[in-house]
Design a protein around this nucleic acid. Structure first.
Lengths: 239, 239
DNA sequence: ATAAAAAGACAGACCTGTCTGTTTACATTC
DNA sequence: GAATGTAAACAGACAGGTCTGTCTTTTTAT
């Protein structure tokens, strides 16, 4: 749980890690590391071809979010994923590596959630931004919601040597950029630059407030306040 | 052995703090609470007169906030507080009880911080609300700042049986009420009720954003956005 | 004299990560 | 198509450390 970088033994295994694949998937060619071909084969496969790896990431992400990263042990994860302990350590060098991978995976999941939820709302919503707030409302109202997983991870991984917080900062930058893009659709680049930080702060506050008090009215308050701010920054609008 | 002095202390304290392990010590002989002396000795001590208790609360609060509640063990706390382990368990029934007491103490500290910082800024600020945002800026800029201790505790204490989250919700309600009072000073009760939730959300977002990215501009953005919202809700102001 | 606090051993549970076997599934070869 | 080789995954014991909470003995302060 501490002390980066990993020990040499772990790093050695990490070198071999990409070669491993599920014997159950049946769709993979056998790999011989002595051939040139194997090099080309395993490189693209490293990411996702193992079912065990997927189950581990899925389970870890879910448990980490629901109960807390520190509160969930390796044994819980492998039990619920139905995987042997050695399989976990074959795919991830340490619990910390698993945490990082789970965070990266969650970013994809969150992005996909917003993409699909916004598309669902896009027909009735008057703008992408309003579709976003409708999607946010869905998110806050979901039964499992427990705040922003990334902000939570930042708090839980307080050890300054842990790479988690750096990842979280990167994610938040990417998310803020995404949000700014939606505002730009409505009021243009220049005006959006002025209000985007405040809107991002409202969204951030909505996530926390909903984690504390529940979803009641939270998304609507954030949306309405954002619209007021955006209207005030509109180049054509008066004041 | 005659006496069991330590145990009699525990038994007496059980009157104030519900002791989890009281079942084990239940077979103790009654203490002679009848003598004037014993009453006089322990009564004023129990509540707040103990230096050890204060040091424990102070140390626990500081370490919990800086490194996380789960990351800091009892041994660290007693070592840095310079007290024996039994002294801790004489004053607090469990680590959870210590956590709760530290949270309650932090509420007092936070309140006192805002009171004094706002007083400091009150001379130059045009309103209590602006003094509040100046104080908030001080808070976010402090070297030790690591987000809202209560929100962090809520996340760390994910176990639904833990009393921490309920305390946090109460604190947040009290804080929101305090903030609403400041807004009422500016625009009256009715208008304040409309914007207070959004302003509280901005403040909440400012706390998180600063924990993630640092204090750069954060308090100012929250303040300016709040002023825009408040101006928009002003009963006399038109648009 | 007496109670509080210190000091530190201890139990029992839990944690991460390692190790050793065994089973399973698939590719190759007969 | 059956036998065989091979590597992934399973199963579980284990080491060494941490955690909370309890207990006993010694010291300190009044």
């Amino acid at each position: 749980m501490s002390g980066y970088p990993a020990r040499s033994a772990l790093r050695l295994r990490a070198k071999w890690l990409p070669l491993k694949h599920s014997a159950r998937t049946g769709s993979l060619a056998r790999i011989d590391i002595h051939t040139e071909r194997s090099i080309h084969l395993f490189v693209p496969r490293t990411k996702s071809n193992s079912q065990a790896r997927e189950r581990l990431l899925d389970t870890a992400d879910r448990l980490f979010y629901r109960e807390g990263i520190r509160a969930v042990g390796i044994d819980r994860i492998i039990a619920e994923a139905g995987v042997a302990k050695m399989t976990l350590y074959a795919h991830f060098a340490s619990k910390d590596a698993l945490i990082l991978a789970a965070l990266a995976r969650r970013e994809e999941v969150v992005l996909e959630f917003f993409r699909s939820a916004m598309e669902k709302h896009r027909k009735r919503a008057k703008s992408s931004l309003l579709a976003f707030f409708a999607a946010l409302k869905d998110l806050l109202g979901s039964a499992e919601f427990r705040g922003c997983a990334f902000a939570n991870a930042l708090i839980e991984l307080a050890d300054p040597s842990h790479p988690g917080p750096a990842f979280v900062r990167g994610y938040k930058r990417r998310f803020a950029k995404f949000l700014r893009g939606l505002i730009e659709e409505s009021i243009g680049k220049e005006a959006a630059a002025k209000v985007a930080p405040a809107v991002a702060m409202l969204v951030e506050g909505a996530l926390v407030t909903s984690a504390i008090h529940g979803p009641q009215n939270v998304a609507d308050v954030a949306r309405d306040a954002s619209l007021v701010l955006i209207r005030g920054a509109q180049p054509t609008a008066s004041h």
